[in-house]
Design a protein around this nucleic acid. Structure first.
Length: 876
DNA sequence: ACTGTCTGCCC
DNA sequence: ATTCTGC
DNA sequence: GCAGAATGGGCAGACAGT
């Protein structure tokens, strides 16, 4: 089962293991399974053999499921494998959900009803009591801690039949927590704590959900399979008629049920074959197009985890924090409990599905629709101000309540903007192109050229999107005009950011020569600042976009102001590709990225800018109404040089050199590094601008890419974090330290999450797990906000590569040596190799780190450079 | 008004 | 950002 | 080689809580 799939958790026929089997099938060696507290606790007693333990567990409590609508727990019910674990927490007067927050009380006093069945060894331990089962649909609320015994007893002794309540009414329940339904709790043991809601925009007409016999009568009717060329190999999904995709789940012109999208996601998650993934999405889009085309736009947004084009600056503002809260409210579990579950499952979506699946819901299925979910997302994104967090939480809870099965998981994953099903922007664009083509032209391969045509359509759509990255523009254009006309409606123009061209990493100077062979190439300094795409519109408006197409115009009013001065008078409109770099005007020196990043970001006034920037221009993409994207770099650069005049320290051309000589290239790279830049970007002169592509026409040449060159640090792992997603079950990241012989302490220097293959990742986990210790050693120093899930003894030394060293607000390496209160950290840390030849005390020392920091080009004064040379001699 | 936490966005 | 991986 | 998914440091801004 692919890790990313949710299906196992909501009971697809082929894989619906019960909770226990699931735990069996996916053991996590790193996380003690803390779901079954009873089992855990009994194990800890450690004296009895397994048979006695089982007996004890049975005697603790038992559960039976009378019927789906009458989930109650009686004394003697068998909880054995379904115990969810509920512990009393005196502080919060709630049911704690981990041992760590459990109050110590005896079973006897808490729950005399079951204490009788517990042997003295346990009863007198004054520890904890587990009372709930996954089959128990509600946990009684506590008003005071002292009433706990009564409530617990009432569950066990006097179960009341589940008494269905009318769904809460809309206005009051949006933000209401289960505990606001106090007083009824005792009688409501059978009522799920989730807040249910009738939300008109989320409700499809009942008939569309239930009338399975109603078939779609789409205009296009049955569409024949593609089954051709490259697609033939994966035509399993393409050769499908739209009717069967729709499966009678909704009618023409009816809102697309969110369930349909979630099911598509689920199917996609089950394969890693890209062709299959795209085909599944094509079928999904075709179904939407033939029934309810107006729902395509929201569907696309849900597929790409956005709510608006990037340059609109609309963000969800949802992260794990709020999701923990929302899930807690929706499921009645504590946040801690959900966090623990996340560590075990490695995905909050899976956690949500699992929690939800243990709750019985009323009524028919989900009422979520694609447009309803999207609208909710938009509302979440636009809510701000006081109490906005609560409002956001409320609408998430609402969606969770209306969701069922895998929908729950995909609502959560969408909110995290991480579908992690192997589908992202590029696949969506391909699917979009194909589905539109098939929708318009039909799937019959009339002339044997269908595969080509689909590929063409895909290129067209991708080009349109990189030139005009807005589905708000593109989808309507596709819907109301022939595909061939797409570029007339979606094309590059000042005011809308183009996806910037990216560069690829190279490992050696010779690789550059290798890749570019005989074509002429040019090198530019790679400035360490922020990508800035400058747009000057015909009306004189200046706009600035970031690498990710965010609108940064209000962040750089100083640049906006100076652009006109730098442009020659005949320039009416222009788009420049530049890097904005922090700059010290007095010393005429480039400043590090870390300085630039302290600039204010919103509504900056020119008057109170404290970090000045110099703009280094290196490309011209548009001038006076003409796109230069299709022109060779040589021409674009000529346009740049003639359109702009340099203003020292404000707007300059990127330092460049054209050469074919390896040694000259090497020298230029050294110069670049001395000049406080990251290295070089090497570009062919003959190639066009390729938006969004990390093409091999631009190469990144950085010192730290070169093997055996660049800063390397020997570190000691002293902690680790549980992995998520495909790293579930191993450590996803490690906490690294260096050794300070002066103070005899290990000081954290950074975390580490890349540079290991899956195999190594597993090896490291196996290797380090035996060295887990209960609590950090006294001689560790770390940041309070960076506490790892597990601590290690100091046993290993790893070699890690760094691009730079920085002064850290959280890490402690070399504390006091460079900054009185801050330590040093690593920029872009990655694992190079395990150093089995070194002992932890031989790790890089605090003094060495401080030295490395001081020697970075940015900090080099003339004296330090001299010092360097001396050091160099000493080292020999 | 201050502080701590979460989030998004730079790299 | 860097790095790894399946296709 | 592409596309996607793991993961890093560190900053400002927005809120919530005090």
């Amino acid at each position: 089962m692919p890790q990313k799939t949710l299906s196992a958790f909501y009971g697809k026929p082929k894989s619906s293991p019960n909770a226990a089997a699931l735990r069996e099938s996916a053991p996590n060696p790193l996380v003690p399974i803390n779901v079954n507290f009873i089992a855990e606790k009994v194990k800890k007693q450690g004296r009895e053999d397994e048979a006695v333990q089982q007996k004890k567990r049975r005697r603790l409590a038992r559960v039976v499921e009378d019927s789906p609508s009458n989930n109650t727990i009686k004394e003697g019910d068998d909880l054995e494998d379904d115990v969810e674990g509920v512990i009393l927490n005196e502080k919060s007067k709630t049911w704690a959900e981990s041992e760590s927050e459990a109050v110590h009380c005896s079973i006897e006093e808490t729950c005399p009803a079951i204490a009788g069945g517990v042997e003295d060894g346990v009863k007198n331990q004054n520890t904890w009591v587990a009372v709930a089962s996954s089959k128990m649909s509600s946990i009684p609320q506590l008003e005071s801690f002292s009433e706990a015994p009564k409530k617990v007893a009432s569950i066990f002794m006097k179960p009341k039949p589940k008494s269905p309540r009318a769904p809460a009414n809309k206005s009051t329940s949006a933000a209401s927590k289960p505990d606001q339904n106090e007083g009824e709790a005792g009688q409501d043991a059978g009522v799920e704590p989730i807040v249910r809601i009738e939300a008109e925009e989320n409700v499809a007409s009942p008939s569309s959900v239930t009338a399975a016999e109603k078939r779609v009568k789409a205009d296009v009717g049955k569409v024949e399979g593609v089954g051709l060329g490259a697609l033939a190999a994966a035509s399993k999904h393409a050769a499908v008629d739209v009717d069967s995709v729709v499966g009678g789940r909704w009618d023409k012109d009816q809102p697309i049920p969110f369930e349909f999208l979630a099911d598509t996601f689920e199917e996609i998650s089950e394969t890693s074959k890209r062709l299959d993934i795209v085909n599944l999405l094509i079928n999904c889009f075709r179904a939407i197009l033939t029934t309810t085309p107006e729902d395509l736009l929201p569907a696309i947004y849900l597929c790409t985890n956005r709510v608006a084009p990037a340059h609109y600056g609309v963000e969800l503002g949802i992260g794990e924090g709020i999701l923990f809260k929302a899930l807690s409210t929706a499921t009645g579990r504590s946040e801690q409990r959900i966090k623990d579950a996340l560590k075990q499952e490695g995905d909050l979506g899976i956690v949500a599905v699992k929690l939800k699946s243990t709750q019985k819901t009323f009524g028919a299925g989900s009422k979520l629709t694609v447009r309803g979910v999207f609208k909710a997302f938009k509302d979440i994104a636009t809510s701000s101000g006081k109490n906005s967090q609560k409002v956001k939480e409320g609408s998430i809870v609402k969606m969770l309540a209306s969701s069922k099965g895998n929908e729950t998981g995909y609502v959560i994953r969408s909110l995290q903007a991480k579908l992690r099903i192997g589908l992202a922007e590029q696949s969506v664009l391909t699917a979009l192109a194909h589905s539109f083509y098939l929708w318009r032209e039909g799937a019959r391969d009339k002339d044997g050229r269908l595969a080509d045509k689909l590929e063409q359509a895909s290129q067209l759509v991708k080009q349109a999107y990189s030139e005009c990255p807005s589905y708000d523009v593109m989808i309507p254009a596709l819907l109301s005009h022939p595909m061939e006309e797409l570029l007339q409606h979606c094309h590059f123009m000042p005011g809308v950011p183009v996806k910037p061209m990216l560069a690829k990493a190279t490992n050696a100077v010779t690789e550059v020569i290798d890749k570019f062979q005989d074509s002429e190439f040019t090198c530019e300094y790679k400035y360490d600042g922020e990508r800035a795409q400058l747009h000057v519109l015909e009306d004189g408006t200046v706009m600035i976009f970031s690498r990710n197409s965010e609108n940064n115009s209000s962040k750089y009013p100083d640049i906006v102001q100076r652009v006109h001065k730098a442009l020659r008078s005949d320039v009416k409109s222009i788009v420049l590709d530049t890097e904005a770099v922090a700059y010290d005007r007095d010393k005429k020196k480039i400043l590090p990225f870390q300085v630039l990043s302290t600039r204010k970001r919103k509504d900056v006034a020119v008057g109170d800018i404290d970090v000045q920037v110099c703009v280094f221009a290196f490309d011209c993409l548009y001038i006076n109404g003409r796109s230069l994207l299709k022109c060779p770099l040589e021409e674009r650069r000529a346009a740049l040089y003639s359109a702009m005049q340099e203003m020292e320290g404000e707007m300059q051309f990127a330092t460049a050199k054209t050469s074919k000589d390896v040694e000259e290239l090497q020298r230029f790279l050294d110069e670049a590094v001395d000049g406080c830049t990251e290295g070089l970007i090497v570009k062919t002169l003959c190639d066009t601008y390729e938006p969004a592509k990390r093409s091999s026409h631009w190469l990144k040449l950085k010192k730290d890419y070169l093997q055996g060159v660049g800063d390397t640090i020997d570190v000691v792992p002293i902690g680790a974090f549980h992995g998520k997603g495909k790293r579930t079950g191993v450590f996803g990241a490690y906490l690294l330290s260096i050794y300070d012989p002066e103070t005899e302490t290990y000081q954290t220097i950074s975390k580490l999450g890349t540079g290991f293959s899956e195999e190594v990742l597993q090896q490291l986990a196996d290797c380090m797990t035996p060295h887990i210790i209960d609590k950090p050693k006294k001689y560790y120093t770390w940041g309070e906000t960076l506490v790892p899930d597990v601590w290690f003894d100091t046993v290993k030394v790893w070699e890690v590569k760094a691009a730079d060293l920085s002064i850290s607000p959280v890490h402690k390496a070399g504390l006091g040596l460079v900054d009185p209160v801050k330590g040093i950290s690593i920029r872009f840390p990655r694992l190079i190799r395990v150093r089995d030849d070194k002992a932890p005390e031989d790790a890089t020392s605090a003094e060495q780190i401080a030295d490395m920091f001081r020697k970075q080009a940015y900090h080099k004064t003339e004296d330090v450079k001299e010092q360097d040379e001396e050091d160099g001699q000493e080292d020999e």
